Computed example of a mutant assay.
Amino acid sequence: MGRRDFEDDPDAPAANSLVPAASAVVVDDRGRILLQRRRDNGMWALPGGVMHIGESLPDCAVRETCEETGLEVEIVGIVGTYSNPRHVFAYDDGEVRQEFSVCFLARPVSGELAVSEESTDVRWFAPGEIDALAMVPSIRKRVADWRSGSMPAAR
């Protein structure tokens, strides 16, 4: 399913759903960050996705990271909360989702890097390599918040 991100775009379609989601900034012992290239928009992104009934948001971040990258992770902190009503995702099926996500800080504990049905590439990047990558603004914001080392105010 294709997806198009709209952020602060006056021509964006109106949201018709709000779904809790979680993502993870996974950092290895060399200080590199784990990113995946999304199949639906071709952009580099953090692993993450929608929360399932019966799981917590941290559990969601752990599950999604494993599903999308092949790595088991441990949550060690929080990067921030993201709920910008001017940021929506429009899907091919007609859903237009308002963003609502908590981004966690995690470390890898086991597993092997692997692409999934949702990704075309999964790699570790040094922080200085990230600026040149194609990335939607909301993911770039999460990475910048992690790099700044301080949790931003909720938005």
Score class of each variant (00 low, 15 high):
2 G>A: 13
5 D>L: 13
6 F>Y: 15
8 D>G: 02
9 D>F: 08
9 D>I: 10
11 D>A: 15
12 A>H: 10
14 A>R: 06
14 A>W: 01
16 N>D: 14
16 N>M: 12
16 N>E: 12
17 S>Q: 12
20 P>K: 13
21 A>L: 02
25 V>F: 08
28 D>R: 05
31 G>W: 07
32 R>D: 11
32 R>Q: 14
34 L>T: 02
35 L>R: 02
36 Q>V: 04
37 R>L: 08
38 R>E: 14
39 R>E: 14
39 R>T: 06
42 G>T: 07
48 G>W: 09
48 G>L: 12
49 G>M: 07
50 V>L: 06
52 H>A: 15
52 H>S: 14
52 H>R: 15
52 H>W: 13
53 I>G: 04
53 I>D: 13
53 I>M: 07
53 I>A: 14
57 L>D: 03
60 C>L: 10
66 C>D: 11
68 E>C: 08
68 E>R: 11
68 E>W: 08
69 T>N: 06
71 L>V: 04
72 E>M: 11
75 I>A: 07
76 V>M: 04
78 I>G: 02
82 Y>A: 05
82 Y>T: 01
82 Y>R: 05
83 S>M: 07
85 P>Y: 09
85 P>R: 08
86 R>T: 02
94 G>C: 09
95 E>P: 00
98 Q>C: 09
99 E>V: 06
100 F>L: 14
103 C>H: 01
106 A>P: 00
107 R>I: 09
107 R>C: 04
108 P>T: 11
111 G>H: 09
113 L>K: 03
114 A>K: 12
115 V>F: 06
115 V>C: 14
118 E>R: 12
120 T>N: 05
120 T>D: 13
122 V>A: 07
123 R>V: 01
123 R>G: 02
125 F>S: 06
126 A>S: 13
126 A>F: 06
127 P>M: 15
129 E>H: 02
134 A>D: 13
136 V>N: 10
138 S>N: 09
138 S>H: 13
139 I>S: 03
139 I>K: 01
140 R>A: 15
141 K>N: 07
141 K>P: 00
142 R>W: 00
146 W>L: 11
148 S>H: 06
149 G>M: 07
151 M>R: 12
152 P>S: 12
